[in-house]
Design a protein around this nucleic acid. Structure first.
Lengths: 350, 350
DNA sequence: CTGTTAGCGCATTCAA
DNA sequence: TTGAATGCGCTAACAG
């Protein structure tokens, strides 16, 4: 076991018989070191098990090579995968990640998180918290004020901000158009929680597509859920109660679709014969639902990766006193068609 | 928008008309500051929007208030929830989290992660990577060598190590005993990937309980999966092909159980009449499977929280030159009984 | 090529 | 109660 005192650059210098600045040069791969000296230093480093203190380096350089990530829960599919994408991209670009998780939209907690991240000298902040737009105004002020590069994920685009977002509206349109093509007309919706921008977008996509198809009285075929299967179950029941001629449901995520499938079964409805169900996300289990679920596939990992690349550009630019034009990057979802919305497919696999 | 140069303690001092050490005292809530002075400094702080540089503080104190967390993927239920528990507990105890994700057990990547965490002066490392024991030997050496407090999650207990683990063996026993009580005898298993310690433990629990019940020829009712629904599907099919009198399946996680349910349906088997299925994890969707899944409920968040508390004890102890006795903390799972393993329940809800 | 001198932002001795 | 020095571990100018 090694001594408790930390091994510093000076210990290495002494061991190698050089000045400690030479050691610094070796560590930082500077060219101006004699090969023989370099080798001697290297072996001293491994000998002593020296590891450079990045904290000290950051202090000088005013740069920590660290990104702050603020996420929302780790319960849901999308946000979790987004985080995975962020992590991978950050690692590739040489950033470490300081992770904070928000469980609810508590301004005090948000403020504390931002403070901590700034105090820890993060080079940028990836704000991966879905939520109601108004909740962000003070935040933008706060982050904008200190001028820390910030990228927002799945947030309503605002001028002056860097946003990376899934095109949920398009996803919803794909889902509804598919159902229409399959001959379904009274396509109800089980919405996500009101506060989520993505939920609003999915609803908007559904509404626009339905209206374009000339279907009205949409109010009576709407239900609101909270992303959980239980809420999908309840939402479906309330839809059916209100709308006897309901023939399809667009659930705004796969868990709620699962709940709807379950409720339909209990009501003796056959999917997709009597009723079609489409979800959103394409969680890995979706193809094993009964019947297999047609759903809109997101690529949340890509979303996260894109956010980090954007971040990196901003940081690079900033070092050269340039700026990156604010704007929105949209990621396109696509529809994955399975048995829950196609009568022919159901015959085979059922 | 503020000037680009960072605001330091000196700027605040100047603004408040005191020396910068006084500002330091205010920041650190020292008692020996005149109330009037304190107020003046406080207002200067808010005025300038000053935030202390934790990096600099860490450098002096030799302590970063940061925990390194090494996780494995963010795809699986357990590991993700464990991370959530870690995050919450860490926040409560005033630690920030430096997150690294391992996608596969690559020694180079592991080494790079450890190096980075150590270089960033983390106060401790929470190693939340499931995997084969042998992969850890060099690691223990590495972490033990630098004497950074380390807690391992869901790893085979080894003397001299701090381990926090779910009692998977018990969980498996609960599952199998329940099936036996319900009158099932030929209880097959769909195992997790060979490399995972938890998978081994669940298998061991199954095996021991089966043997205790006097059931043999266990070799022919074993299949190996990879935690995915697809592998559960395939595993189940292979079991049925080999064992015509199979009457129950213990799947080592809920996704594989889902695959098994699906396969059973395709084979025209009624669950639970012809065949019972039990899973492991109790993912939120489990109660919405068809039929609702009996499963072993873990509390992975608690596991993560426990690990951090342990970590905190070690760090505290270390500051006082004490040591914490190495050992294992076991977290107990419990069985959640639903329709997939109880014929009477199936009648009602089916 | 290598060593010397400064200083990053702050806490921690001291002294006043 | 406050201010002046000292140094955490390291990099960034210089000089030699």
């Amino acid at each position: 076991m090694r001594p408790k005192t930390r091994i510093t650059i000076r210990d290495v210098a002494q061991e190698a018989g050089v000045s400690y600045q030479t050691v610094s040069r070796v560590i930082n791969d500077r060219p101006d070191v004699a090969p023989e000296t370099r080798a001697r230093v290297q072996s001293a480093i491994t000998e002593l098990g020296y590891a450079p203190n990045i904290i000290a380096r950051s202090l000088i350089q005013g740069r920590s090579n660290t990104l702050g990530v603020v996420g929302f829960g780790l319960e849901l599919f999308g946000p979790t995968r987004v985080l995975a994408g962020i992590e991978r991209a950050a690692t590739e670009l040489g950033f470490s990640l300081l992770l904070s998780i928000l469980d609810r939209l508590d301004p005090n907690r948000m403020d504390a998180i931002i403070n901590d991240l700034l105090s820890r000298q993060v080079d940028g902040v990836v704000w991966a918290v879905p939520g109601h737009v108004s909740a962000f105004e003070w935040l933008v002020d706060r982050l904008g004020g200190v001028a820390v590069p910030t990228v927002y994920l799945n947030k309503r685009p605002d001028p002056g901000q860097q946003v990376v977002a899934m095109d949920s509206r398009l996803g919803a349109r794909l889902a509804v158009e598919h159902l229409l093509e399959q001959g379904y007309r009274r396509i109800g919706i089980i919405k996500g929680p009101r506060g989520w921008w993505e939920a609003q977008e999915r609803e908007a996509g559904w509404r626009a597509t339905m209206q374009a198809a000339g279907i009205d009285n949409l109010g009576e075929i709407e239900a609101e859920g909270d992303w959980s299967a239980a809420s999908g179950d309840a939402g479906f029941q309330s839809l059916v109660a209100r709308t006897p001629d309901l023939d399809a449901v667009f659930a705004c995520n796969d868990q709620m679709a699962l709940g709807a499938l379950q409720a339909a079964r209990h009501l003796g409805l056959d999917v997709p014969r009597d009723l079609a169900v489409v979800g959103f996300d394409d969680i890995p289990e979706a193809s094993y639902f009964n019947p297999a679920l047609t759903t809109v596939r997101q690529n949340p990992k890509e979303l996260g990766a894109l956010a980090v690349e954007r971040m990196n550009q901003m940081i690079q630019a900033r070092q050269q006193d340039r700026t990156v034009e604010p704007g929105v990057s949209w990621v396109q979802p696509r529809l994955v068609i399975r048995a829950s919305s196609v009568r022919e497919l159901a015959e085979e696999s059922g």
